[in-house]
Structures are given as structure tokens and as C-alpha cells.
Design a protein around this nucleic acid. Structure first.
Lengths: 268, 268
DNA sequence: CTTGGCCATTCCGTACAACGGAACGCGATT
DNA sequence: AATCGCGTTCCGTTGTACGGAATGGCCAAG
């Protein structure tokens, strides 16, 4: 076998600048199952070991990473500080939290808030149901727009949704995934009628989600709120009850973000 | 002693590599008072405008920053995701939160958790008092070790505290700041006797703090928990009641982190 | 004990990304 | 009109980032 040129795992973007690589390393570093080893990070990011090593040294010197026993690496103090500051300072997550908690209590299901990043949605916050069975979604994780409830909710309020979906068949994530872009596009109209949409086993087997878009002052989606559950827990007949709750939660968050400035913008 | 030629603003480290600069820019980007403008970031970080501009473009391409109206920059979706993941994945903040909330309820004062970063402490979490008057401490902010309650609590459990303090007079932050390293060192013994220490107007006027160290399995400090209040709210005679509460909270967090492995790991 | 695999770490010559002073166009302020 | 501060672009130079290969440590299998 000659040298495999490009066999990265899905999470790795094609890194170009040193900064990009460092950010990828950071991203790998905060994956939930700490600790992380150098070789593992090199594999995940598709970077040469020497490069990862140098980058980790830089990050360690800067306080963004710390090295533990036997070549294990963790998130450093400055990264924790930065993270806390980023979340505390972002209007999104500051206003989102209480709304998510409310929604979780009202529905009893796991609640997510995701923001758009290119052709993906990034989970920024999550309130788990109090009962057993956790969703295996990861905070900070990215999921495609076309096959998830949050993604489709976002698409429904993007002017260029059709272009993003393209015309080529989309990868099937489950046997039930809609792979035809026009079918997906048609499914988005649910939001126009009801204010929310449902997605069943489009991204993951046995999982159903109800989502509604969070929009800025111009009506463009910045993110979406969803409730998720197993198909036999979150049944189809309960959607009519859940949907409006999700819609209202998303509307409340939209108002808290840009909706307030929509009216008059009194500079304080 | 060669005095460093450092005329930058407090937050700016002397950046060397491109990655360091990018991290500094990110740090400036998450400062609480969004939005941020390019020139402002350039000033804060001490970098050339052109450099900041290029770096921000990199960050924007990578999804770590977004540019809004008229050259304003915000934290991007990937940064939010990374931040959420970092905090969700770090044992520190995961275990700390409920303990802090408890302590806040017990004391009624603002509660902080800070971790060590070199000769500074970084605020990683904070639970404000429910009443008015917020502390102006910023999550993610760095404060010196020698003049803050959390800092001194950390120093009290560092083997090289004396070396960190050095022998030169320390900068006075208020008229009451202890500037003599040996005086500071002496103040640390409070922790040995009581398990906590008090600091009054050492870092900021009219502010008193009570703090206790959070230690790892080896007994070395990784951070500290503190309660803070205005001197006429958090009175001297209430310290005897607050101290043990802070001490116990810190002990509980220490146990949750590495303390559990303390018993059966005579690895040496 | 020897071997082999996997690891983190170091080395080094080359290539290319980062640098930042300077210049530009714009809008607001005087 | 003139000045300021802003974000942005340009470009020749500099020095950092690169990654294949080599090193030595560790551990498990032979």
C-alpha cells in the first residue's frame, strides 16, 4: 500500500494555514472523551505527528492546552477561560439557556440549540431529559443541514437553501433519509405552514426531532431549537402538541436576539 | 534583571507565532463588551492592523469569527461549539457548577471558581448573588496570584510559591495591597490553620474575598473557590461563618477531581 | 532476552505563509 | 476643505511552519 493521501475522518477540514491547523487541534482536544494522545489527534486531524507536536507545544505555552501524564493532553486554563467568556458573552447562549430549560420542562424531552456554520449546524447548548437514555449528540458537534431537524429548520429560513442543497443526490444517513434535494426542499415548507417541522429517522435510526428556526432581524436563520426523542417515546401523535411549544420557544429566542432591535433600535 | 520592553496593555502577551497571535485575537474577540472592531483588537493585542485583519479573515473562514455590520466582529459558531464542548468536557467546570451554586445559596454572596495559569488565575465560572450590585469580575479574565484571594489560595498549595512571588516588591493594586513578598507568603499560612484565607482590598477597593484551594491528587493547587462581596456587605465578623463553607466546597470539588484517586495511588 | 510495534520527541533543509509599513478609499467630525 | 480614524489592500522581505526521517522509550508478544 503506498502512502494514503487523504483518508481523514469526517471532522477534519482541509487545513491550510498554521492557524487553521491549531484550531483543528484545539477542536480535537475538547472532544468529550478526554484525555487525548498526540497520535490520536494526528489521526483525527490528518496532520503529521511532528506538526501536531509542535502545535501542541505552542498551545501549551499559550496556556490553551496542558500535558498530563504520559503524553496525554487536556484543555488548558486559558481555553477554559476563553470558553466561559465566549459563552457568557454571546447573546445566543445567554438568552437561550433559560428558554431551553423551560422547553425541556414543558416537553420532557431532550432540547437542543444549534447555530448554522456553513452547510452544517453546530450544537451550542443542550438540556437533557431528566430520565435515562441520553441522546448521543455532542455539544460542539456538527451535523449536516439537509438531514436533521435543526438543519432543515435553518434551511427553511435561508434565501439560498436551494443552492446549498444543490442538485446532486445527498448522502443517505439512514434508509429513510431523503436524498433528493427537491424532496428536502419540499419538506421545508412545513415551517411556513406550522412554524415548525418534524424529522423522523433522517439522520439517525429510531430518532425523531421537532425543530423551529431562530431568526435575526432580517428573518434569516441563525440557528434552530429542537426537541429530540426516540421514535417510540416521541410519538407522531404528540407532535401536534410539541410543535407549537418549540415554535414559541424559537420565536422567543429570536425576539431576544435581533427581534428587539427590529422595531426601533433605541441606542442605549 | 533585564526589564522586559513591554508596553502593551495588560491582557496582551508578547505574541510570537502566528498561532499565538490568533489566540490573542480570539481572546480579545470574546471580551464581554461586544461587538469588537478591528482597530480596537489591534490596540488590545499590540498587533499591526494588517496582521489582525488577516488573522480575523482566517478565523472567519474557519468559522471561529463572524463579521457583522460595518466591520464589527463576533464569536463565530465554531467557537461557540468549541467553547460549549470544552466546558461540557472538562471535569473542572462540570463538577464545579453545582458546588458553586450550593455555596452561593448558602452564603448569598457572589461565588467564583478560578484555575491557575502561570502566575495568574483565570476565572472559569461564577455564580452571582441574586441581589443587585454585580461584581465586575469577568469570566475568562485573568488576575494576579499575589493580590487576590483565589490567587493566594492557589499559592498556598504550590511548592514553588516563594519563587513565583520572587523577592522584588510587588505592584500595589490598592493602597492596602501587600507589596512585600514575604508578607504575602506569611498570609498564606492562614490556609494551613483554617483551610481558607481572607483578602481585604488587596486587589480592588471596597472588596473582600474568602477563598480556599482546590487541589489535585498530589495536593497541588489547580484552582480555588472564593466568595466575594463589598466590605460593608461581607463583613469581617461573618468570615468565621463563610470560611468553613468555602473550605468545604473546595474540598468537595477537590475530591470530585483527583481527590478520589488520592487514597489508593501511592505511585512514586 | 529479543523482537516488533507504537509511541512521543527531535532534527533539518526547504518552501511558503506570515509579516507590517505604507498607501488607499471611505465616512464622520471640525 | 481639511483632518482624523477606520477597514482594507499591496508587496518585498523574513523567518516560521512544514513533514519525512531518525531517535529512544515503553510495552507486549515471541
Amino acid at each position: 500500500m503506498p502512502k494514503a493521501v487523504n483518508t481523514q475522518i469526517d471532522g477534519a477540514r482541509d487545513a491550510r494555514t498554521a492557524v487553521d491547523k491549531a484550531l483543528d487541534v484545539l477542536t480535537a482536544l475538547v472532544r468529550p472523551d478526554a484525555p487525548h494522545r498526540l497520535a490520536e489527534i494526528a489521526r483525527e486531524t490528518g496532520l503529521a505527528k511532528a506538526t501536531v507536536h509542535r502545535t501542541l507545544q505552542n498551545l501549551t505555552d499559550a496556556g490553551f492546552a496542558v500535558s498530563g501524564d504520559g503524553g496525554s493532553y487536556h484543555a488548558g486554563p486559558r481555553l477554559l477561560g476563553l470558553s466561559a467568556a465566549a459563552l457568557a458573552g454571546s447573546r445566543e447562549s445567554r438568552f437561550a439557556r433559560p428558554i431551553l430549560v423551560d422547553l425541556q420542562r414543558q416537553t420532557g424531552h431532550t432540547v437542543h440549540y444549534a447555530v448554522r456554520h456553513g452547510e452544517h449546524a453546530v450544537y451550542v447548548d443542550k438540556v437533557e431529559q431528566e430520565q435515562a437514555y441520553r441522546m448521543n449528540s455532542q455539544i460542539g458537534g456538527e451535523v449536516p443541514l439537509y438531514c436533521t431537524a435543526v438543519g432543515r429548520a435553518i434551511l427553511s429560513r435561508l434565501p439560498d437553501a436551494a443552492e446549498i442543497l444543490g442538485s446532486a443526490p445527498l448522502p443517505a444517513r439512514t434508509p429513510r433519509t431523503l436524498v433528493d434535494p427537491t424532496s428536502v426542499l419540499a419538506a421545508l415548507s412545513e415551517v411556513d405552514d406550522l412554524g415548525y417541522l418534524v424529522e423522523t429517522e433522517q439522520n439517525e435510526r429510531d430518532v425523531r426531532c421537532v425543530a423551529a428556526p431562530v431568526v435575526d432581524g432580517t428573518g434569516t436563520a441563525v440557528g434552530a431549537i429542537s426537541v429530540s426523542g426516540l421514535t417510540f417515546t416521541l410519538r407522531e401523535d404528540s407532535v401536534a402538541m410539541l410543535g407549537p411549544l418549540v415554535r414559541d420557544a424559537a420565536a422567543k429566542l429570536s425576539a431576544a436576539l435581533g427581534g428587539g432591535t427590529l422595531r426601533s433600535v433605541p441606542n442605549s
